[in-house]
Design a protein around this nucleic acid. Structure first.
Lengths: 134, 134
DNA sequence: CTGCGTGCAAATGGTTTGCATCCAC
DNA sequence: GTGGATGCAAACCATTTGCACGCAG
């Protein structure tokens, strides 16, 4: 991590814990779920702080903020671009473990956009929701 | 369109207009923008009706609801899966005009998910925002 | 010490919903 | 005529923000 990326940033216990917890899990929790996770360690943390730190961390590229089809945003402790599987019923997001070739976009075809990053997401019904047969 | 797909559904002027306006544009408007567009034709339409109809239409697969990284959802009059370009600064979404091979996911690798659809989105900075040099 | 980060709570803003009325079928 | 669709406004809920205090550097 380059040091001047962190100019003025302090490492509070809250920020440290949020990042550690997010990296610990393989799921892609919502801000609320992160709040619950972290609250077991720092019971007095506030939801606002969780939001502020998730914002901070994702703006630095340390974690990934997943847009997603649902209302809530989800966060990914692994900042590298990798395909996701999203359940259109319950909204959960899994990492795809299978190595996939990401599509390449020729620069001349980028319609004037710059700094393109490719997001690939497969949307379907997860095994749990399929089992519920709703 | 199969007839039993529409059992009980009525074609109100509002629904008809919303769909027509959405198909007319090449952009991917938010619900609010659709509201503005339709209001020029039906001044007394309510925002709630726009939301209800966008929900209705996307649940039938007639239009596409784009998840996206921003807060607001955007809607696409073209229900076929096609790659998008999203501006991370202003949030606008364009269609990619360039034919791209969508990644294929072997069924054995779908981790139990079913009915998978592939969404590809390139995230970057659009020419307008790049020009603003913010 | 300084001022960034926090806790708390109120404010925001997109989206949803209850209800009486309206109109497509 | 009947039930789905609408208009309106209040309700919801995830997220953001103002403020005074606390703590990392």
């Amino acid at each position: 991590m380059k040091s001047d990326e962190n100019k003025g940033a302090r490492l509070s216990r809250q920020r440290e814990t949020i990042l550690a917890e997010l990296r610990k899990v393989k799921t892609h929790p919502t801000a609320d779920e992160v709040y619950d996770m972290v609250r077991k360690i720092l019971p007095r943390i506030s939801l606002g702080t969780v939001y502020r730190n998730l914002d901070f961390l994702s703006s630095r590229g340390v974690v990934l903020r997943l847009g997603g089809a649902g209302t809530q945003k989800r966060f990914d402790g692994n900042p590298a671009a990798h395909p996701h599987l999203r359940c259109s019923v319950c909204g959960r997001v899994d990492d795809l473990e299978y190595p996939l070739d990401l599509p390449e976009l020729p620069v001349e075809q980028s319609m004037g956009y710059s700094s393109l990053r490719c997001d690939v997401e497969f949307v379907g019904v997860c095994p749990i929701c399929a089992g519920k047969d709703c």
